[in-house]
Design a protein around this nucleic acid. Structure first.
Lengths: 147, 147
DNA sequence: TTGATTGCAAACGGTTTGCATGGGA
DNA sequence: TCCCATGCAAACCGTTTGCAATCAA
């Protein structure tokens, strides 16, 4: 499964975009894939593979872990899903817009921070020795619920 | 192994500090621990557990993986070592000073960026709903070697 | 002396793989 | 029809655990 797909700036994973991409790249849509994508679309947090597995099986009690991983890796390989390591597990982030994160050191909550809500760093300040293409900011602290 | 230790601001993992901490907290120093810490002290990159294991065994050919993990977790639990997920594996960062990172999307190189070399964000811009204690910036791009 | 630390090997948990079956296009 | 995707189970791999032996303090 090589990376063949690029659609420019994808804001957020959505079924419609995946259908388009699949059709043009020769991938097949299946009920399982639609369920998985549907769940990710609506996810406000950053689910783990297992959370996807259980959520999908609550609706269609017949989706194997292999299919879940296969689908997640497929979406990752076409840049429609991001993998992040948070706390101590891998999580999947359907938000492909540039954004930052807030992580609560108490409960592990991860919240997206809209890119524009933090000031732009300004490329002038970035180190010159490497070619920097993007950046993201991770804020750490205590969330409202834990305070 | 509960977290009992706090030494204020630790700049960078060093054997001397660990010896002091161990003595005051009732932990024991062993040749294996000294080797592992010695390796981490001098590491310019962010080694994986396996890299530590092989590096240490090159010098003392008798340190088990269990001991490596045990020591890494011990240092982590007393805030003298940080765990990071980079690329697709867990890595250990002996630099406990506030700093940022540059990650090469081509070779996976991780380089520390001195905190002061990026402008301070200014807390005014941070979201008000959670209590933000710190932040770090991850720069992504292509390193000099890969260009 | 004493109990923390070690090495070993088995266990564990998340992810991937091989293969035969099933189902989109 | 064709071959991509699926389910299952086994394999894999990094990490943790249980236990008896060892050794730092």
């Amino acid at each position: 499964m090589t990376k063949k797909y690029s659609m420019g700036i994808v804001q957020r994973l959505c079924l419609k975009d995946v259908e388009t991409m699949a059709a043009s790249q020769g991938f097949k849509m299946t009920p399982q894939r639609r369920m998985i994508i549907g769940f990710l679309e609506g996810a406000t947090s950053h689910p783990t593979a297992d959370e996807v597995y259980f959520a999908v099986n609550k609706k269609i009690p017949m989706t194997s872990r292999a299919t879940v991983y296969n689908t997640l890796n497929w979406l990752k390989s076409v840049d429609m899903l991001r993998e992040r390591f948070e706390g101590d597990k891998v999580r999947y982030d359907p938000n492909c817009e540039r954004h930052h994160h807030f992580i609560c050191r108490c409960c592990g909550l991860v919240e997206d921070i809209h890119f524009d809500s933090l000031q732009d760093l300004g490329l002038i300040d970035l180190p010159q020795d490497h070619s920097v293409e993007s950046y993201e900011i991770t804020l750490r602290g205590i969330c409202k619920g834990c305070e």
